[in-house]
Design a protein around this nucleic acid. Structure first.
Lengths: 157, 157
DNA sequence: CATCCGGATGAAACAAACTTGCAATCAGAT
DNA sequence: ATCTGATTGCAAGTTTGTTTCATCCGGATG
């Protein structure tokens, strides 16, 4: 099993750029970090292979595509038996409106981030996901009034 | 003021692809949606100009770059005076470790998503952001044990 | 101290993708 | 029937991404 060497300063500088704009030409990245374009390209490919870079995606404004409402949901379950938790994870993850799902410690068991077109849609979703699920004890809803900051950028400095 | 025409089925199909992988060649997108590459490219550019596409970014695995801990924080403020709320928004948004920040209704006022390297770092962050901020009444912490689903994809179907 | 070896690099050639110009098409309004 | 504006596809031109290859560097070995 090959030990995966840590990212060096070059890799981190490249990541920092790609997290903001992955359409930046390799030549320009190279100028910014003092490497040739091929060197940049090889480092990027390595980080993709290792899973440091999970994906390359376009970020879409939810409001502009008919999903103006973002909602946080704290979910508390009845039983924490492993198989029930796993089933819940799969169930939540499979729903397109659930864009994020975390299994957490604290006063809740899951936290979901949901995007919907209307509150009626959310109401229907709660019915499907929570009321019809025997293992959901209770849930609390937080409706976002302002998406102050919305990203998945990770500090790499 | 030009009314912005709705996205048609072509645009939505393109978005659906780009949200999963924005390195997909336009030629391949064209084949998938039955358009020529230039047509695809013009539609993409238009959606970028209109802000439908907010950004094109690489998604980085937090754990692989030394931020293995993701934390949700519910923040409750003392005063909801507009200027204080705005100040809080700017303050939270400016912190790199805060990757998401929403202003919400319900039993909390803000919900933050934070990524840190260690709990000690989180403790230091709470000191800076909450304890030293007079307008923060209380906050609750939820540490993520499993990042079940982590994305910003929006259903466009 | 010389040699070897693995890994990374840059220059150049090559391939692929993006971008633009242009003529043709279509739908709706006049 | 005609005009207008918007969109399309094709083809040419340009930029970007990718591969090849010789070189360089550092550490281990004899």
């Amino acid at each position: 099993m090959p030990v995966l060497p840590d990212l060096d300063a070059f890799d981190r500088a490249i990541l920092s750029i790609l997290q903001k704009d992955n359409t930046t030409p390799q030549r320009m990245i190279g100028e910014a970090v003092n490497l040739s374009a091929p060197a940049v390209q090889r480092r990027i490919r390595r980080m993709e292979e290792r899973g440091v870079i999970r994906a390359n995606v376009a970020l879409v404004d939810p409001a502009k595509v008919g999903h103006p409402i973002t909602i946080f949901v704290e979910v508390e379950v009845e039983s924490e038996r492993a198989e029930l938790i796993d089933a819940a994870k799969r169930g939540f993850a499979a729903v397109p409106e659930v864009q994020q799902c975390y299994y957490v410690t604290g006063e809740a068991d899951f936290i979901l981030v949901v995007t919907v077109a209307t509150m009626a849609d959310y109401e229907a979703l709660t019915r499907r996901l929570f009321f019809e699920n025997n293992n959901v004890k209770r849930f609390r809803t937080f409706v976002a009034m302002d998406r102050v900051k919305m990203g998945l950028e990770v500090p790499v400095g």
